[in-house]
């Protein structure tokens, strides 16, 4: 899922200066799971903003709206008729889809969207995938060095790996240490001896903003048109 964390409240307050009507947008998908922007957080933010407005005479009128999934147009219809400012506690994707659907609104980010990861423990989320567009998990025992090695090395741990930890921080596991261990357990150490050549980064962000087309999923006409151009 997409991992996000709440922006510092003071930063949000500053961003909202000069607003009138404020809608706090919560999302029941990823940001709800990482406790940054679900229904409760939206309600809390809404109460907090109202309280601040009342204390400081900001004149804001604030209410929360929480949708199932802010990144799909069909799910953000509840925002129809909303005016003024939307403080999005959905991820950066959701915020942009809302902005696209409702160009007149001013959509502001209430969270910092960080990465694609998974919960590791209560309140702890760890990045797992960098979305490089060319998966090599079959070569690395199911552990992604692009996302989880601080240097995105493709050929084994650097000289900074010690006691299973990354040189960058004692809280960070060395991904390559994990890969070596995992391959040892699986009896596939031969994979480590193979040099992985320079990666083609075009399917990643380096190829420019990405557009993914699943031709089979396209409606008949556009599918035909697409195939004709291929």
């Amino acid at each position: 899922m997409i991992i996000a964390e709440r922006k510092p409240l003071t930063e949000v307050l500053e961003m909202l200066d000069g607003s009138g009507e404020i809608t706090v947008l919560g999302c029941r998908s990823c940001t709800a799971i990482c406790l940054a922007g679900g229904e409760k957080e939206a309600k809390e933010m809404s109460e907090a903003l109202s309280l601040h407005s009342e204390l400081k005479g900001k004149g804001w009128s604030v209410r929360p709206i929480t949708v199932e999934r802010a990144c799909e147009k069909e799910f953000i219809l509840p925002l129809q008729g909303v005016k003024g400012t939307v403080l999005s506690l959905a991820c950066g994707v959701g915020a942009q889809v809302v902005q696209e659907m409702f160009p007149m609104l001013q959509v502001l980010p209430g969270v910092n969207t960080s990465n694609m990861g998974a919960p590791e423990g209560i309140g702890v989320f760890v990045e797992k995938c960098a979305g490089c567009g060319d998966c090599i998990l079959h070569l690395t025992a199911g552990i992604c060095p692009i996302a989880r090695c601080a240097k995105s090395l493709l050929n084994g741990p650097c000289g900074g790996s010690q006691n299973g930890k990354c040189e960058v921080s004692p809280d960070t596991a060395c991904a390559w240490d994990q890969i070596v261990r995992s391959l040892t357990t699986q009896g596939r150490l031969d994979l480590l001896e193979r040099n992985i050549p320079p990666k083609d980064w075009r399917p990643s962000r380096s190829g420019g903003p990405r557009r993914t087309v699943n031709v089979e999923a396209m409606p008949g006409d556009s599918q035909k048109a697409w195939r004709d151009t291929e």
Binding site: Q162, C174, L189
Partner: peptide, 23 residues
């Protein structure tokens, strides 16, 4: 190239050197 015999995992340090040599 560089080699660090003192980093971990120790068993892999020589394999990594071999990779550098073959590269």
């Amino acid at each position: 190239a560089a080699a660090n015999p003192f980093a971990d995992p120790f068993e892999f340090r020589v394999a990594r050197l071999a990779k550098k040599v073959s590269a």
